[in-house]
Design a binder for these strands. Structure first.
Lengths: 232, 232
DNA sequence: ACACCCAAGTGTCCGGCAGACACTGATGTG
DNA sequence: CACATCAGTGTCTGCCGGACACTTGGGTGT
């Protein structure tokens, strides 16, 4: 059927199109759907993840997705569970809780950097998957033997992960009146009489790297924890 | 024209109705619109603040609002600026930076408690109003004379306000696998073999107050800052 | 007294969103 | 061959933000 239809192009084209649809297209599965959602979110943010956009990526009607996920929240949950990946094994990290937690924070930050929508998605009341809980497990385990109570270990992990969330993306961190936003900065300068302390403090933040807040905060938090753990 | 129509009720009724519309109803103004939005957000969350809902509270069509605000983002910005209130004057707080910042954090937390939608609304790229910037100014000013560089003062304030944001509301804090969510907790217990550290740590968090994470984190952060400031 | 203007509020439309529900067409098994 | 099951479809509803043209009523200039 390849060459014989040379002079009946339309027929062949139609068949090709049909074959393209029914043969080459892989079956719709939850992982494939989630992967499409992740691709979309990585590229254009969580706001552009809608059922129809995801369906569009798979050349399928949005209603087809509902055969595999019960609703959008479930789709997002699967996306998160896949995107966070396997929790790390910190037992191989030499040293005490501090190097272990440092590595944990680094890995988590890295993951969230790869998927900038994760901070925004992992917010509010929702179901957590096993891998997501596993990340917390890792961090809490790193604090065993520090003499902290269970509640304190929990709070410490919460504090660190909160800091990651806050420094991770402009879309989840609170807006701050400095950072590279020239417009806002010039507004502060224009009303300098109202904000003398800000004007003074922003003078030497011009070359601040985006990572400086991250490192500063993490150092303070770890110092504070160390003070508590070593008992002064 | 008032009494002469006594026996032509319909006319009077129509006029009353007209008067009721034009006389008793106050004019639409930006503050009134914003107040309606704040009431709505306080009661039912940011998700229920839509142009039509706000307009409905004022017995007006949603399109009428667009005469006073250019779009929804601007409405929200005004809501925020009004809700945060005047920034505090910390110069009256006796003591050094730590009591001042403690008071600042307390006040900010209080404000955000009064308007639980504030954390969610003050996120992402957006315009900040003078009062909002003023809050930051207050905090940065409290750190003057500590010997910290401008960038460090900024980072410190960012760290504290980030912690407020994280502990403030379930709608902005990252989901955590403990807290009073029985369902999630039982799931951890059910798969206890996967999460031994979590099981151990959650055992004594049953009576954790919702404020404990807040106080724990703030104490660690302040301790860490103090360590840096006193130079040790 | 009259024409006119203009600001405030309105009605209608559009595209995009999540999701309910009934349907079609293929496939494998008795 | 009959039939159940299942993957994917089409259409509908009710929300959302917002563009745009419209009405209406209270001044104001002449």
């Amino acid at each position: 059927m390849t060459e014989s239809a040379r002079f009946h192009g339309t027929e062949l084209l139609w068949k090709l199109s049909d074959q393209g649809r029914s043969v080459t297209r892989p079956a719709l599965t939850v992982p494939r759907i989630a992967a499409a959602g992740i691709t979309l979110a990585d590229a254009a943010g969580m706001a552009s993840v809608s059922m129809q956009q995801v369906a569009g990526m798979l050349d399928v009607t949005k209603m087809a997705l509902y055969r595999h996920v019960t609703n959008k929240a479930e789709l997002v949950a699967v996306m998160i569970e896949i995107a966070v990946g396997e929790p790390p094994d910190l037992s191989t990290v030499p040293g005490g809780w501090r190097p272990k937690l440092t590595e944990w924070a680094r890995l988590m930050r890295e993951t969230w950097q790869r998927h900038p929508w994760l901070p925004a998605a992992t917010v509010g009341e929702r179901a957590m998957g096993p891998r997501e809980i596993g990340w917390t497990e890792s961090a809490v385990a790193a604090l065993e033997g520090t003499g902290l109570t269970g509640a304190q270990r929990m709070d410490a992990v919460f504090l660190v992960s909160g800091h990651i969330r806050n420094t991770r993306s402009a879309s989840t961190a609170g807006t701050q009146p400095w950072s590279p936003d020239k417009r806002l900065r010039s507004q502060i300068a224009a009303h300098g009489d109202l904000f003398p302390a800000l004007v003074a403090a922003t003078e030497d933040t011009i070359d601040a790297t985006p990572d400086s807040s991250w490192e500063f905060g993490l150092a303070r938090i770890f110092d504070g924890l160390e003070l508590l753990i070593t008992g002064r």
